[in-house]
Amino acid sequence: MMQVRYSTAPTSAETATTADLRENFLVQDLFVAGEVNATYTHEDRMVIGGAVPGTGQLDLPAWTEVLGTESHLEARELGVINVGGAGHVIVDGEKFELQHLDGLFVGRGSDVAFAGAEAAFYFVSAGAHATYPAQQLTHTEVEPLALGSADSANERSLFRYAWGQDLQTSVLQFGVTVIANGSVWNTFPPHLHARRTEVYCYVDLAEDDRVFHFMGEPGSTRHLVVKNREAVISPPWSIHSGAGTGAYAFIWAMAGENNCYTDLSPVAVEDL
C-alpha cells in the first residue's frame, strides 16, 4: 500500500491541531509482516517505505498509479537500511547480505527484492538523473563522526552512508545517527535545509519509549510524539530536532536540489 502526502506551507503547521500535524507529517505502519508499505510525499518527490519479508520474498513495487513508471527505479535511486535482524536484498540478481543497521545504495533502473525471516528493511527513493552502481554500506565499517557532548546531553555518532562524498548519487543522501547512552538530544541546535527535504525514521526505541520530535519554523515550533519505527517528513522550511525518553537511533535521508551535505542554515537557540 502507498499513501500520498501533499506539500504543506509553514503557516499550516503553525495553526494545525495535533491530529493535523500527525496526518501530514508523521508516517506510521510502514513495517507490517509480509508486506511492503510506503508513503509518497510531494516534498521533493521522496518515497519512504518499509518491507518485512518474513518467510517469503518481497519485490519492490512499481506503484505505477503514483510514480507513473513501469518499475519503481525506472527514474529513481534507492537507499535501504535494515532495522531488523539478518536479511538480504537482491539487486538485479545479486544478493547483498545486510545485518542490523547495514545500508545499501541502489542506482536507477534496477530491480529489487527483499528477503530474510528476521529482517525489516527501511527504504527511501528519490528521482535520479543518472545511474550509479549498487554499493553495500556495512555499519561497522563506516567511520562515525563524533558529535555533541555528554554535558549538553547530545553526544552522538553520525554514520554517513551516502552524503555527497565517497559514494556517488544523483540527489539521495542517507545514514544513521546513534545517540550515546545517557544523551537524549539529536541535532541540537537545529538547522534548516532550504534546498532539500529530510526524513527522519526513529529506530531501536524500547516499547515504552518515545521521541519528542520538534518541527516548524524556528519562531513557531511544534512537536510530534514518535514511537519506534515511525518516520517524520521534514519540509525545507522546518527545523528537525528531537529528544528521547530512552536509547534510540534515527535514520536520516535527504533529497532535493543537490547532494551537498553542508548545504544548511544553522538556527540560533535564541531564535527558537
Rank of each mutant, 00 (worst) to 15 (best):
residue 120 A to C: 11
residue 88 H to P: 01
residue 250 F to N: 06
residue 233 I to C: 03
residue 262 T to F: 09
residue 180 A to V: 06
residue 13 A to P: 01
residue 83 V to L: 01
residue 165 Q to F: 12
residue 73 L to Q: 01
residue 263 D to K: 02
residue 74 E to V: 03
residue 220 S to Q: 10
residue 135 Q to C: 06
residue 8 T to G: 02
residue 86 A to K: 09
residue 144 P to F: 11
residue 202 Y to W: 06
residue 153 A to F: 14
residue 100 H to Q: 15
residue 46 M to A: 05
residue 26 L to T: 01
residue 59 D to C: 00
residue 257 E to Y: 02
residue 209 D to M: 05
residue 152 S to H: 14
residue 272 L to I: 14
residue 17 T to F: 10
residue 190 P to M: 15
residue 109 G to I: 09
residue 50 G to D: 06
residue 129 H to Q: 12
residue 78 L to S: 00
residue 232 V to L: 02
residue 3 Q to W: 04
residue 78 L to F: 01
residue 261 Y to Q: 12
residue 59 D to A: 14
residue 61 P to E: 00
residue 111 D to P: 08
residue 201 C to A: 12
residue 136 Q to F: 01
residue 151 D to C: 03
residue 193 H to Q: 12
residue 60 L to I: 02
residue 88 H to D: 13
residue 175 G to A: 10
residue 160 R to S: 13
residue 149 S to P: 10
residue 212 F to S: 08
residue 128 A to P: 14
residue 32 V to R: 08
residue 125 S to G: 09
residue 140 T to F: 04
residue 226 V to Q: 05
residue 31 F to T: 07
residue 48 I to G: 10
residue 117 A to L: 10
residue 154 N to C: 09
residue 130 A to T: 15
residue 231 A to M: 04
residue 152 S to Y: 04
residue 234 S to C: 09
residue 97 E to W: 08
residue 214 F to I: 11
residue 7 S to I: 02
residue 202 Y to E: 07
residue 69 T to R: 13
residue 229 R to I: 05
residue 64 T to G: 05
residue 60 L to D: 03
residue 93 G to H: 09
residue 22 R to Q: 15
residue 111 D to R: 15
residue 257 E to M: 11
residue 207 E to G: 06
residue 45 R to I: 11
residue 174 F to E: 14
residue 99 Q to E: 15
residue 231 A to C: 14
residue 129 H to K: 14
residue 177 T to D: 08
residue 159 F to R: 12
residue 33 A to N: 13
residue 41 T to E: 03
residue 233 I to Q: 03
residue 75 A to S: 04
residue 272 L to T: 12
residue 96 F to W: 04
residue 241 S to L: 00
residue 28 Q to A: 12
residue 223 H to P: 07
residue 78 L to C: 01
